[in-house]
Nucleic acid binder design. Structure first.
Length: 419
RNA sequence: GGGGGAGUGUCCCGAGCGGCAAAGGGGGCGGACUGUAAAUCCGCUGGCUAAGCCUUCGUAGGUUCGAGUCCUACCUCCCCCA
């Protein structure tokens, strides 16, 4: 889509070179504004989960690049719109969340952003408004008269988010149908309040973004712009940021740093270069050099990816500890200190801790039944020795430096520390 | 409002003459091979104090020695007519 366009602004150059750009309403026009400095742009985040996960990382990085290249990022919290629920890309309506949950989720999301953006009152400092501030006080009739008259139902029916639902005979409630109107109104409001000229988002947001630009035109704003990032999947088609174990949370309390590091370390060969560009800030020429690594050597590239991506979220020190823990675990077969850990008391150990229970406690097996099956399949290890007898127990003799290492398969390891 | 159809293992899709912990597939997990990759092959894929016991087929009742399967009511969804 970028074709032969050669942007002059640092912002668009970075986005295009690194693979962040999917669609843009007007590249040349946006380039001009970005070049003149002080571009204010926003991305909306719904407060549907207690934190953000790797699936939102592209969006977060968009805002980060904006700030790095002289713009002002606006991370809009959807405290209001989350009460409605975005139908885009979904077959069925999401359950409505209680207001307290939305508020709590918002706090969790704030903590994530604090790591990626510099907040404050300065020109280029990021801010984080909440659309609940203006949406919840809207008066229905006034809103319809002032804003609603500008929305064409004909056109809204043609939008993918709506059309797909209708075509598949899936219920679309009036509540959800209104989502895009509210999102469009957000854009207008942010333009008024902050001079925000650009809304960004994932490619599934294109329709909603264009609706906002359109509303702006009818309500007398300056020309607004929209830009979307590609919807990321791994090379084999899986959604970014989710695994069977759960989401790849950007919050240490929800996903240990070691496992975050492992997520990137275990990406597919074909994804390595692409991910380095999107999820690290290494200079492009350096990435180009790393990308050339092939076969077993590509593992070095993945380690760099893992450490850089982890450093971005959890800090460099934690990232290096994770890298070191992985090195000791996988390359030296040693018991690394910084693996995820659980604690048990000495008396519990004394009382006798069966292997089955131990693996369940460590979260490596969902039930003793599963632990039993894994033992039959040869998948469980205690201190790197395969467990063969499901009736065996963890003994004092297994404790090395105050801990035992439990492993499920080759990759998942948990330390049980005796306190 | 009238007529017809469907809801199955808490990841999904889906078979299921009254003996069913319930076929098959996808996904996932483990093993082998590798490079902590991909592809491929093999195994596993309700719970538990485990030769036994307990809980599962939209919900609640009923028939039966025995119900996912038959009957009744209810809920939800879809299709056709109005």
């Amino acid at each position: 889509m970028t074709g032969d366009f050669h942007p002059k602004s640092d912002f668009l150059s970075a986005l295009i070179e690194r693979g962040f750009l999917h669609q843009c309403s007007d590249l040349a026009g946006l380039d001009k504004i970005a070049r003149s400095g002080g571009l204010v742009a926003y991305i909306g985040f719904d407060c549907t989960a207690p934190s953000l996960h790797a699936g939102s990382l592209v969006q977060i990085m968009l805002l980060r690049w904006l700030q790095k290249t002289g713009g002002k990022p606006v991370a809009l919290m959807g405290g209001g719109t989350t009460r409605v629920g975005d139908p885009s890309g979904k077959d069925t309506a999401r359950q409505l969340l209680p207001l307290e949950t939305i508020a709590a989720n918002k706090e969790g999301i704030k903590r994530v952003f604090a790591k990626f953006l510099r907040f404050g009152d300065g020109m280029q400092d990021a801010i984080m408004p909440d659309n609940a501030d203006w949406l919840t006080s809207l008066n229905y009739i006034d809103f319809l008269r002032e804003t609603g008259r500008h929305f064409s139902v004909n056109r809204m029916l043609a939008m993918d988010s709506v059309k797909l639902r209708l075509e598949r005979d899936q219920e679309l409630s009036f509540l959800e149908f209104n989502y895009m109107c509210l999102q469009a109104y957000d854009f207008f409001e942010l333009y008024k309040r902050l001079g925000c000229m650009l809304q960004m988002g994932g490619s599934d947001q294109w329709g909603n973004i264009v609706t906002g630009i359109d509303l702006g035109r009818r309500m007398g704003t300056a020309q607004l712009y929209g830009l979307t990032s590609p919807l990321l999947t791994t090379a084999s088609g899986a959604k970014m940021g989710k695994t069977a174990q759960g989401a790849i949370w950007l919050d240490e309390a929800m996903l240990p740093v070691f496992e975050y590091w492992q997520y990137w370390r275990n990406c597919e060969d074909r994804d390595t270069g692409r991910f380095l560009k999107l999820f690290t800030e290494l200079p492009l020429d350096e990435i180009k050099r790393i990308e050339l690594l092939r076969d077993a050597e590509i593992n070095e590239a993945k380690k760099i990816l893992a450490t850089e991506a982890t450093a971005m979220v959890h800090g460099r020190e934690a990232a290096q500890q994770a890298a070191e823990a992985a090195r000791q675990t996988f390359e030296e077969d040693k018991m690394a200190e910084n693996l995820p850990a659980i604690e048990i008391s000495a008396s519990e150990l004394q009382a006798g801790l069966g292997v089955l229970t131990a693996f369940v406690k460590a979260g490596l097996a969902a039930s003793t039944g599963e632990a039993r099956r894994q033992i039959k399949g040869g998948g469980l290890k205690v201190n790197d020795r395969t467990v063969t007898d499901e009736r065996s127990a963890i003994r004092q003799a297994d404790i090395i430096n105050g801990a035992v290492k439990l492993s499920l398969g080759k990759k998942r390891h948990v330390l049980v520390k005796v306190t």
